[in-house]
Every structure is written in C-alpha cells, then in structure tokens.
Amino acid sequence: MTTLAAMLAPLASEEPSTAVPFSEQPLIRVIMLSGLAAIGYLVFLRRNRLPFHIVTVFVLLAAGAAAVLFPGATDDIAHYVGVGRGVDLITYILEIAVMFVLIHYYTKFVELQHQLTQLTREMAILKAELEHVTQTKTSPSPPP
C-alpha cells in the first residue's frame, strides 16, 4: 500500500498547468484534433447551408480545438462561471446540447409522421375514388 501511495503521490501533487506540452499527451490530441478536422471537412463539403451555419460550426470546432490544445483554459473558464473543473463544465454544456438536439429531432420526427399520415390518407382516398369512377364508367348499371 505504501509503495502504491508513493507512486501516486507525484501525480496527485502535480500542479495543473494551463499549457501542457504537446509531447506529453501526443496520441489523444492527435485523435481529438483529427476528429474535429473530419467534422470540419464534412461541414465544408455540404456548402449548401447558410453561411451563418457554417461559421457557427467552425467557431464551435475552433473552441473544441482550443480546448484540446490548452486543456487548462477550460478550468479557468469553469472557475470563472463557478464550476469546479473544466471537465464538469463541458459535461454540463454537453447535457444541455444533447437534450436540445433530441427534442429538436423528436419534434421533426413527429412532424414527419404527421406528413406521412396525410400523404398515406390522401393516397388511399384518391385511389378509392379513382376506382369508384372507373367502376361506374365501365358498368353503366352497377349492382345495387
């Protein structure tokens, strides 16, 4: 136990610095940054959006890249708004964002379902009316 505690001691006492050198955490940074770059590329491909949307997405991506390159900065922002850690702040923002997206798409889904209902109904009625018309045309005296 004492050896384990001794091993962990330098980790716990390490001061959180605002700028961790890139050489200390290379892999995760590469993964995160390439992920953000990939999203940026996909957004760039879909240029049929409004310029405002594209700018918003790139601002968000830049903020994400900044958080990857300067992890300590999120802590500073968190402290400023009254949250203990930067990770917590990001989690809170993420929760709200996820809820927002869910509700947005649920609303869209319900709307779409409503439209599907209207379409299906209209088709069913039209087809029946068409059949009715052709039946009365082909047989002048339909069976009672």
Partner: peptide
C-alpha cells in the same frame, strides 16, 4: 359489392 376498400400504403 357495397363495400369500399381503402388501403394505406404503409401501416399507420
């Protein structure tokens, strides 16, 4: 005879 059948293209 005397019955109209309407058909939904998908189940709603």
């Amino acid at each position: 005879p005397g019955v109209t059948v309407l058909r939904h293209a998908v189940n709603l």
